[in-house]
C-alpha cells in the first residue's frame, strides 16, 4: 500500500514536470493576419511589403501566481518567409509543471554569454549558417525584418536588423497585479499562442521620429550606428509592446 502511494506520488510528480507546451506565433499587421505579398501602409502613409522575418527567442519563463518563475531557458530561431505560414506557427516546444500561471516572459535576442562566442564554432540556431550572424559586428542579429517600400513608383528594399546587447527586447506578458492574465497548463499539455504585430516597428516614437524610407540611410537600419540610432530606438521602443497573448 505504501509502495503504491510512493509510485502514485512519483507518477504525479513526474506528470507535473512533464506537461508539454507548444509556443506558437501569429504574425499580425495591426489586428489582421499578415498576408505575404500584400501592400500595407504605415501611419505616415508609406506603402510597404514584408518579405522576411526571423528572430531569436530566449530566456523564456512562466510566471506563477505568487510571482515565482519556472524558467524554461533554451534558444529558438523563429523564421517566417514569403509563401510560408504566418498563423499558429510553432516556434518553441518545452515542458513545465502543470498548473496555473499568470503569464510568461522572454527576450527577443541571444543571451550575452552566447552572443559573443566564436560563431564559427557554434551550432544552429546560432552559427554562421543561421543567416543571423553579423560579420562586421560580432554577435547576432536578434530581430530581422525585411521587405520593400514603394516610393513614387520605385520599389526599394529595406531592412531592420536589430541586435547588440543593448537592443535585446524584453517581452513581459504577465500580470500579477490586476490578474488579467491566466494561463492553464493541464497535465496533458497545451499551446500558448502569441500575436506579433510587426507593424509596431513603423509607428512614430514619442518624439515624432519614424522609419522614413524616403531617406536611403534608414532603409538599412543596423545596430547602434549614431546615424540611425534615434530611429532604431523608436523601433525598439515600439517593439516592447509588439507581442501579446492571443485571445
Amino acid at each position: 500500500m505504501r509502495g503504491l502511494a510512493i509510485v502514485l506520488g512519483l507518477g504525479l510528480w513526474v506528470g507535473a514536470l512533464a506537461a508539454p507546451v507548444d509556443l506558437k506565433i501569429n504574425l499580425r499587421v495591426g489586428e489582421a493576419p499578415l498576408e505575404w505579398g500584400r501592400i500595407y501602409q504605415t501611419p505616415k502613409g508609406q506603402r510597404y511589403r514584408v518579405d522576411l522575418l526571423k528572430f531569436y527567442l530566449s530566456e523564456l519563463a512562466l510566471v506563477r501566481p505568487d510571482g515565482r518563475e519556472v524558467r524554461v531557458g533554451g534558444l529558438a530561431l523563429a523564421e517566417f518567409r514569403r509563401g510560408g505560414p504566418t498563423q499558429g506557427v510553432s516556434v518553441m516546444r518545452f515542458e513545465v509543471p502543470s498548473g496555473e500561471y499568470r503569464g510568461l516572459r522572454f527576450d527577443v535576442g541571444v543571451p550575452r554569454e552566447l552572443n559573443h562566442q566564436d560563431a564559427a564554432t557554434q551550432e544552429f540556431p546560432l552559427g554562421v549558417n543561421s543567416g543571423m550572424y553579423w560579420a562586421w559586428n560580432p554577435g547576432y542579429i536578434f530581430y530581422r525584418l525585411e521587405g520593400a517600400a514603394f516610393l513614387e513608383g520605385r520599389e526599394e528594399k529595406w531592412v531592420i536588423h536589430m541586435g547588440t546587447d543593448a537592443f535585446r527586447i524584453p517581452v513581459r506578458l504577465h500580470d500579477l497585479q490586476m490578474r488579467r492574465v491566466r494561463l492553464e497548463v493541464p497535465p496533458r499539455g497545451t499551446s500558448f499562442v502569441l500575436n506579433l504585430d510587426i507593424a509596431r516597428a513603423f509607428l512614430p516614437g514619442p518624439n515624432g521620429a519614424f522609419l522614413d524610407w524616403r531617406q536611403p540611410r534608414l532603409r538599412q537600419l543596423h545596430g547602434m550606428s549614431p546615424e540611425t540610432a534615434l530611429v532604431m530606438s523608436v523601433v525598439y521602443y515600439q517593439m516592447l509592446n509588439a507581442f501579446s497573448l492571443a485571445r
Partner: peptide, 9 residues
C-alpha cells in the same frame, strides 16, 4: 561615415 561608433554607439 562614423566608423567604429557604428558599432559601439
Amino acid at each position: 561615415d562614423v566608423g567604429l561608433a557604428r558599432i559601439t554607439g
